[in-house]
Design a protein around this nucleic acid. Sequence first.
DNA 1: CTCATGACTAGCT
DNA 2: TAGCTAGCCATGA
Length: 109
Amino acid sequence: MDALSAAERILAAIRAIPRGETAAYGVVAQRAGLPGRARMVARLLSQNDDPTLPWHRVLRSDGRSAFPPGSQHCEEQLKRLRREGVRVDDRGRVRPAKRAKSLDEEVWG
DNA sequence: CTCATGACTAGCT
DNA sequence: TAGCTAGCCATGA
């Protein structure tokens, strides 16, 4: 029963990703209260059949699609992201919405 | 129980 | 930046 609600929390966390933004698998898991369960998020998405779920906003921690570059799934994902205003470079890597100007700023705010 | 697999990560070279 | 490695966790054979 706990596992089921865990799955629902993960799905909720994915739906909570604002339009035009993205989140890594690990981040989604953490937001769902399941730190370290990135693979569980991936598994849920792979078995998910809900077309309303914004699966395309979920990326790997390095900002790339989880799908092989050039694959149909990957292209579809990048296409949807671009349509939401997300900046994607030529290699299919998603640029963060905001980037700190320096490491100090990143760490210390 | 052990082994293999996967829409993952963090760390090191 | 890119490639490799070990660690991770849930499932199914």
